Computed example of a mutant assay.
Amino acid sequence: MTSPKRAWHRPEALLLLMAVAMPLAFGTWLALINNFAIERAAFTGAEIGILQSLREIPGFLAFTFIFLLAWVREQTLALLFLLLLGFGVAITGLLPSFSGLLVTTFVMSVGFHYFETARNSLTLQWLEKSQTAAFMGKMIAAGSAASLLIYGMIWLLLEHGGLSMAWVYAIGGGLAVVLAVGAWFAFPHFPEKVEQHKKLILRKRYSLYYVITFLAGARRQIFMVFAGFLLVEKFGFDAAAISLVFLASMALNVVAGPAIGRLIGRIGDRRALTYEYIGLFFVFTAYAFVDSAWIAVVLYLLDHIFFAMSIAIRTYFQKIADPAEIAPTAGVAFTINHIAAVLLPAPFGLLWLVSPSAVFLVGAGLALLSLVCVRLVPTDPRPGREWVFAKPVTTEQQAG
């Protein structure tokens, strides 16, 4: 019989713990950054755009993650970068200036993006294809529950506790640091099912996956940067109000995450992504013309529901990938995802000064382009069947 001590010594348990730890730090940073930047550092849309562009540079460099695997195990790297994420968030409140926020944001971002690269890779390596979508839905729910906890804590500490945003940053980042150190000592090292290549890999047969990943990064970045900023700038939401909006979005994902994971497993990646991008087109278009704070909040919540369906991008890749290429491709995919994320926020911050609506209309256009691409995903993706026009690889071709 398995001892109680070892019953949870499974990769799935570590994945769930990491899913909980990350939003404790990043959720704190995200919930407060607009208010902190505006109220403490006198940011405008232009400075916010520059800050967000800088935040995405480590994501753009995520392909370098593969070179670290030559010296450090992937599981170890995940926990080290989770710790760095927590540290970067914890010190954010100590430097309330343009240059200070650039430094702390970069430290936080290195931890966040390299941790996410490792976690995504380990998830696809450790889970069976038939279970991935459903389990990733559970991870979304676990992460959302943690976000719910941290956003509730932020609201209580700011509204009723009388703490400054600097202290809230320290608490949120510190919790992630504690969990990273705890996981380091509590979990064994889980062996690789398939040894991963330690070099950069770009495959022509992954081209559709690359394009979908690029577009997902572009349209998601527009909403992440400017949807929250609109609530603050146009509708006057303070930090406590923003936290309540985040609370509502995470509460929805706690319920919706597992259901969406099961749905993707049932209807397939292609249909799930189709529903996502149709929904996002209408969300972006509505956000461009919204004049009601309540409608803006509803659109914000809908975006988070649709975004949960993007796990189908990763399950699609898992089905077409060579198992030994998951780690190197995870780094490359993160880089591709962040090309637009690095380039767009600064010029879009300037565009925002002229026309906020135009920013969201571009997002609607990107959602339509994404919809065209995901319709090229086959209903039965597998190696040799990466898009609808590809012919399946024969047994003789595989042997050759």
Results as ranks from 00 to 15, higher is better:
142 A>L: 07
14 L>G: 05
190 F>I: 12
61 L>G: 09
234 K>N: 13
393 V>R: 10
330 A>V: 06
338 H>A: 01
250 M>G: 09
20 V>Y: 08
77 L>V: 06
115 F>K: 04
249 S>A: 14
181 V>S: 07
381 P>Q: 02
5 K>W: 07
331 G>Y: 00
315 T>G: 09
197 H>K: 14
168 V>H: 03
34 N>S: 07
234 K>V: 11
372 V>K: 11
228 G>Y: 02
338 H>F: 01
282 F>V: 01
172 G>S: 08
344 L>C: 01
17 L>R: 09
249 S>G: 13
269 D>P: 01
261 G>N: 02
351 L>R: 02
246 F>R: 06
281 F>R: 01
396 E>I: 11
273 L>G: 08
326 I>Q: 00
233 E>P: 00
171 I>N: 06
57 I>Q: 12
344 L>M: 06
377 V>H: 03
265 G>K: 02
347 P>I: 00
89 V>Y: 09
341 A>K: 02
254 V>C: 10
397 Q>C: 04
345 P>A: 02
116 E>P: 09
83 L>D: 05
10 R>I: 07
393 V>C: 10
255 V>L: 15
328 P>D: 03
27 G>N: 12
4 P>W: 11
298 V>Y: 11
58 P>V: 01
208 L>A: 03
353 L>T: 14
169 Y>A: 12
47 E>W: 02
379 T>A: 15
8 W>S: 13
343 L>E: 05
309 M>L: 15
259 A>D: 14
59 G>P: 01
201 I>K: 13
195 E>D: 13
171 I>V: 11
294 W>K: 10
275 Y>G: 10
22 M>R: 14
16 L>V: 14
76 T>N: 09
346 A>S: 12
40 R>V: 07
324 A>M: 04
44 T>F: 08
59 G>N: 02
167 W>S: 14
203 R>P: 05
191 P>H: 10
29 W>Y: 15
230 L>E: 09
328 P>C: 05
379 T>E: 15
175 L>G: 04
145 A>V: 04
312 A>V: 00
192 E>C: 05
297 V>W: 10
250 M>H: 14
111 G>Y: 08
130 S>K: 15
162 G>D: 05
362 V>M: 05
140 I>R: 08
66 I>M: 01
67 F>I: 10
300 Y>I: 09
56 E>N: 15
360 F>Y: 06
243 S>F: 00
329 T>N: 13
83 L>C: 12
189 H>F: 12
174 G>V: 05
374 V>I: 08
352 W>M: 00
214 F>G: 00
85 L>K: 11
368 L>E: 08
1 M>S: 14
132 T>A: 15
317 F>Q: 02
106 F>G: 04
217 G>Y: 01
367 A>C: 03
362 V>A: 07
180 A>R: 04
210 Y>W: 03
181 V>Q: 08
389 F>H: 12
168 V>N: 03
190 F>W: 11
399 A>H: 10
346 A>N: 06
231 L>G: 03
41 A>I: 01
349 G>N: 03
19 A>P: 09
386 E>V: 04
212 I>E: 00
215 L>T: 02
46 A>M: 14
